[in-house]
Design a protein around this nucleic acid. Structure first.
Length: 519
RNA sequence: GGGGGUGUAGCUCAGUGGUAGAGCAUCUGCCUUUUAAGCAGAUGGUCGAUGGUUCGAUCCCAUCCACCCUCACCA
C-alpha cells in the first residue's frame, strides 16, 4: 500500500513479528514436529527432492480396467485427505490436481516397519505410492500399495474434513488451505485460466500483438479514477500506479503498431465491495483503422468464443438469469435507453433543464456538474439495473468521455459504448479521439472539472498530446474487466471469489499495549 | 459513512451470572476390503481486546478491533 503521509525515506514496516509467530505452536503442531524428528532419526528425509510419477490420478482411473488386466504398476503422488485404519491394514484417500483415489496399505505387502511409518502419517501429508489397481468388495477402484515414500510432511493441521473452511475471512487469508479442501474453489480458478487463455488465443489468431506498458506512471490517465501514489527515492518524484493502460497503448498505435493489446493489472484507490478490488485485471486492446462498430463486433465474437470454450455453447446460468450469447448483442444509445425506460428525451435539454428533470425524478444531483453527468445519472438509475442480456449502451455524452471521439452525427455525444450483462459492466470502448486539438480541449475541461472538485478527473498529459500531434490513425479501443468476465462465466457472486488473494486488511494483532498499533 | 449480524478447542458449532461442551482432527488401545469406517479411553480453551457493574463476568453494560450481509458513494 502506498501512503501519502509517509515520508519518502521511510523503510517499509516489518509485517511479521518473530517473537510472536502468527501460527500458534499448539499441541497438534508440536506432535507433528516430533514426527518429523522421528522420521529423520530413521534416516527418512521428510522433505525429499523429487518423485517420478507414472500417471496423474485421473489418468490412472481412466485406464483402470486396462491397468487391472495388465497388472500395470502405477506411481501416483498426492496429499492424504482421509485415513481409515483397520488394524493391520489402512485405507486412505489421496488427492492430486486431477482427482482423488483410494489407496490400500496392508502390513503383509509393505512389511511391519513401513506399515508403522504409514500409520503415523497425518492428514495433509504428501506421499508417493507404487502399486497395482484393484476393486474392493464395496466396488471402489483402489491402489494396492507395494511401496510408498513421504514427499512432504505437513505440520499444520487441515481444516475439518467435512465442513472445510467456512469463515470467508480465513478462506481468503489462507487461500492455500481453502484450495486444498475445496475442489470447487480450485475449479473456479482453473476456469479463470481457461478464459484468459481463450482471450489470448482469440487475439493471437487475429494478429494482435501482446505488449507490456508501465505500471508506475508519472501521470495517471485513461480512466476516471483515484490512483495509488508512491514515491521513487532516487528520482525523488511521485509516481502513480496505473488506473488504466490506455494512453501508453495508444502511443504504440502512433508508433506504428496496428493492433496491440495488454493483459494487465490496474489499481484504483476507491471503495471495495463485491464488484471492486483495489487491484484488478483488465484487457485493453487498440485496433488501428477500426471504429467502435468494429469493436462491438469483435467483443461479441470474443465473448462467444470464451463462453463456448467454457460451457460448450452460448447459453449459461448466472445467478437467477439464463444468459444467452446466441442472438446478436442488443445495441441502444444511452439517450434512447433512458427514453425507452421513462419516456424522457434528454437530448434536446440543456444543463439547467436536465437538472430540473433529475430533481423531478428524485435523483441526487450532487456532483452532477454538467449535462453528461446528468444523463449518466438517469441511465444508472433507470436503465442499468435492468440490463440482463448482453446490451451495448452507446453514444455517451462528451463530458464524461474525455478520450472518445465526437460522434459523427451529434457533437454532444461520443462514439463510445459499454457492454452490460446481468447488470455487470463488462466492457468500455470508443472510437478513439485522435484530433490533438480536441484532445487538448478535453484535457483542459478535465482540469477545470478537477478544480471544481471532481477528484476523478483526468490529469493533463502533455506528452500524450504530442504523440497525437504526430498522428494516430483512426483507432478503435477496448477495455474488458477480466474479473467480472470470470464472475459472469463461472456464476460467481463476488470478485473476491475469482481472485486468489483479494485485498485484505492486515491480520488482526493482539491489541495490547506492547505495540503502538494506533496510527 | 448508515443499518443489521457474528467473534467460544486446529476446523465446524452448542451453551451458562458461579472461570465451559459436542462432532471432526490429535494421542493411546482393539480391528487385514473400509469409506463422513467403527468401538473404548485421553489430551487440548487468558470463551476477540480493554474498561465498568457485581461477592463473582465467557454471559450484563460501554468502548475498541476484526469479519459477514445490506444501503449510500464510487468502476
Amino acid at each position: 500500500m502506498t501512503d501519502q503521509n509517509k515520508k519518502p525515506d521511510d523503510k517499509p514496516e516489518r509485517q511479521e513479528r518473530p517473537d510472536k509467530p502468527q501460527i500458534p505452536i499448539g499441541q497438534l503442531i508440536k506432535t507433528r514436529i516430533e514426527k518429523v524428528a522421528v522420521l529423520r532419526e530413521k534416516g527418512i528425509n521428510p522433505y525429499p527432492y523429487r518423485y517420478d510419477r507414472s500417471h496423474k490420478i485421473a489418468e490412472a482411473l481412466e485406464n483402470f480396467d486396462k491397468f487391472v488386466a495388465d497388472e500395470t504398476e502405477v506411481k501416483l503422488a498426492g496429499r492424504i485427505m482421509l485415513k481409515r485404519k483397520m488394524g493391520k491394514a489402512i485405507f486412505a484417500d489421496i488427492h492430486d490436481m486431477t482427482g482423488r483415489v483410494q489407496i490400500y496399505i496392508k502390513i503383509d505387502n509393505v512389511g511391519k516397519p513401513e506399515f508403522k511409518i504409514f500409520d503415523k502419517l497425518d492428514l495433509g501429508d504428501i506421499i508417493g505410492v507404487t502399486g497395482t489397481l484393484f476393486t474392493t468388495q464395496t466396488g471402489e477402484q483402489t491402489v494396492m500399495v507395494s511401496t510408498f515414500e513421504i514427499l512432504c510432511k505437513s505440520i499444520h493441521p487441515l481444516p475439518d474434513k467435512h465442513a472445510g473452511l467456512v469463515d470467508k475471512d480465513i478462506r481468503y487469508r489462507r487461500r492455500y488451505a481453502d484450495l486444498i479442501v475445496h475442489p470447487e474453489v480450485r475449479e473456479t480458478f482453473i476456469k479463470r485460466s481457461q478464459i484468459i487463455r481463450s482471450i489470448r488465443d482469440f487475439l493471437n489468431d487475429r494478429d494482435f500483438l501482446e505488449v507490456e506498458t508501465p505500471i508506475l506512471q508519472p501521470l495517471y490517465g485513461g480512466a476516471m479514477a483515484k490512483p495509488f501514489k508512491t514515491f521513487h527515492n532516487r528520482l525523488h518524484m511521485d509516481l502513480y500506479l496505473r488506473v488504466a493502460d490506455e494512453l501508453y497503448l495508444k502511443r504504440l498505435i502512433v508508433g506504428g503498431f496496428d493492433k496491440v493489446w495488454e493483459y494487465c493489472k490496474d489499481f484504483r484507490n476507491e471503495g471495495m465491495d463485491r464488484l471492486h478490488n483495489p487491484e484488478f485485471s483488465m484487457m485493453e486492446l487498440y485496433w488501428a483503422y477500426a471504429d467502435y462498430n468494429d469493436i462491438m463486433a469483435l467483443v461479441q465474437d470474443l465473448l462467444r468464443t470464451a463462453a463456448k470454450k467454457l460451457h460448450g455453447g452460448y447459453k449459461f446460468k448466472f445467478e437467477e438469469h439464463e444468459i444467452d450469447f446466441e442472438p446478436d448483442f442488443k445495441q441502444i444509445s444511452m439517450i434512447d435507453a433512458v427514453k425507452e425506460a421513462i419516456g424522457l428525451d434528454l437530448l434536446p435539454l440543456d444543463y439547467e433543464q436536465s437538472i430540473e428533470e433529475a430533481k423531478k425524478a428524485e435523483i441526487n444531483t450532487e456532483g452532477l456538474i454538467n449535462w453528461g453527468k446528468v444523463v449518466e445519472a438517469f441511465f444508472e438509475r433507470f436503465v442499468e439495473p435492468h440490463l440482463v442480456q448482453p446490451t451495448y449502451i452507446k453514444d455517451f455524452p462528451q463530458e464524461i468521455s474525455p478520450l472518445a471521439k465526437v460522434h459523427r452525427d451529434n457533437p454532444r455525444l461520443t462514439e463510445r459504448f459499454e457492454l452490460f450483462i446481468a447488470g455487470l459492466e463488462m466492457a468500455n470502448a470508443f472510437s478513439e479521439l485522435n484530433d490533438p486539438e480536441d484532445q487538448l480541449k478535453r484535457f483542459k475541461d478535465q482540469v477545470k472539472a478537477g478544480r471544481a472538485g471532481d477528484d476523478e478527473a483526468h490529469q493533463f498529459d502533455e506528452d500524450y498530446i504530442r504523440a497525437l500531434q504526430h498522428g494516430m490513425p483512426p483507432t478503435g479501443g477496448l477495455g474488458i474487466g477480466i474479473d467480472r468476465l470470470v464472475m459472469l462465466l463461472t456464476d460467481t457472486h463476488s470478485i473476491q471469489d475469482v481472485l486468489f488473494f483479494p485485498q485484505m486488511k492486515p491480520e488482526g494483532q493482539k491489541s495490547d499495549s506492547d505495540t503502538g498499533t494506533k496510527d
